[in-house]
Amino acid sequence: MEVEFKKPKQGDVPEIICTICPNSCKLQVFEDEQGEIQVEGAGCARGVEYGKEEYLDPKRMLITTIKIENGVLPVLPVRSQVAIPKEKIFDAIKVVNHVSAKAPVQMGDVIIPNLLELGISVIASRSMAAKNKE
């Protein structure tokens, strides 16, 4: 990929790089007069779908760590069960940063049940044994 970072100028149609395959097509996504979403520049149908989704409702996985008490390590990796809306990532991080766990933890254990009322839980992405067995 040959990209120099460019910040989109105001009024520009933002360019979305398709990440589905290594062709990295540069997509122009916009709403036409009829209010239909148009995707230009896609090399295949999958790119059109990707462009629409990235334009209307981009989602990302939340991946971070939280503090854990009495674990063999001081932090526990966690993730959202499925991807969450991209613009909620920083709000989600704020919530997660206030939470801590206590070892032992099993991979898949629910850490936060309903993140930001999104109906998506945050789960432990590894198991962690306790340092001192009680």
Binding site: M1, V3, F5, I17, T19, S24, R60
Partner: peptide, 14 residues
């Protein structure tokens, strides 16, 4: 050119 995956360029930098 960026030597990492395009997906990582988009999701980690952009």
């Amino acid at each position: 050119y960026c030597s990492g995956l395009v997906r990582n360029f988009v999701q980690c930098l952009q």
